[in-house]
Design a protein around this nucleic acid. Structure first.
Lengths: 164, 164
DNA sequence: ACGAACATGTAACCCGTTACATGATTAA
DNA sequence: TTAATCATGTAACGGGTTACATGTTCGT
């Protein structure tokens, strides 16, 4: 998306792995959008063949598209992140600290977020094994770092409530 | 929503203030939903008049609705929270730590999140001034506490990057 | 008298998810 | 050979936002 040509499939995977913690997009949203962006003149594609006859569309930014991307990154992002956390919503209906449903709920979430935290740490280790890897994709590293810190906070918060 | 009758307006305000950090719903979504829930037999309403002629609909849960709510709270919540943070998405396109756009971006977000953190702390002080207030709405307190911790982490993370 | 907050609704539109649909390539 | 992954698309549906629309009450 930045400079190297990518297929819609590549983008879908990036939304799943690289930035899925903070932004999501399914391939059913991506393919029509790529067509729209091409019509708008922000991207172009080149048809390539992998193997015998598997057709791929390698998209790349046009000068106009690149300009727009650079401008967009520099623009202010004044909106605070929108979150939908069903567990937290359910907490609203727990009126007392003694509610017998509370501890199981916390435990369930603790399992979930500990697993996620371990998974993210594992990813950091494999994707950014050394300083060179970090230097080459610093923003991506920051995203993963932020995701890990955020999960760590969530786990700590749950643990502290479980000790009680 | 729990036991005391509430109007659609009350609910909209709750989504704005009490749980807006983790779940959102506009009045345009709430009013039709209240009608649907009433048709389904989960809630009923009583027309009341405030002042001279301002019509209010005080909704309350039916036994069936209350049962469903209790069951829903106890159900597992296996999905991890979905987040959409445009700033973090933009970070993805910053390839180097020396990119001149990075520091201004971080500073802008720091202002945003410091303000939000101060606002949330202020709310905790006014909504939960003593232990009695916490004991009466423990879940609500936990939500606010979690929101504060989350913002504190975000601010700390940004500060640490700004020191650099 | 006026503006903010209270109070309730509908309509249009956009965005995003799930499901439907198809086919090629690669590794076990 | 068979399952996982690669690769691209469309359609239906639902949820959610913004905008449209109206009227009352309360505090200053």
């Amino acid at each position: 998306m930045n400079q190297r040509p990518q297929t819609g499939y590549d983008l879908a995977k990036a939304f799943e792995n690289e930035i899925g913690e903070f932004w999501q997009a399914q391939h059913s949203q991506i393919y029509p959008m790529l067509k729209r962006l091409e019509t708008a003149g922000e991207i172009t594609h080149e048809d390539t063949i992998a193997g015998e006859k598997l057709a791929k569309k390698q998209y790349s930014l046009t000068p106009s598209g690149h300009e727009k991307l650079v401008a967009w990154v520099s623009e202010p992002s004044p909106e605070l992140a929108a979150t939908k956390d069903e567990f937290i919503l359910k907490l609203y209906f727990i009126k007392s600290a003694d509610d017998p449903r509370l501890q199981p709920m916390l435990q369930e979430q603790a399992v979930l977020h500990r697993t996620q935290l371990a998974h993210l740490k594992q990813r950091r280790q494999t994707v950014f094994p050394d300083q060179a890897a970090i230097d080459q994709a610093y923003g991506h590293y920051l995203i993963l770092d932020h995701a890990i810190g955020r999960e760590q906070y969530y786990v700590d918060w749950l643990n502290q409530l479980l000790e009680h």
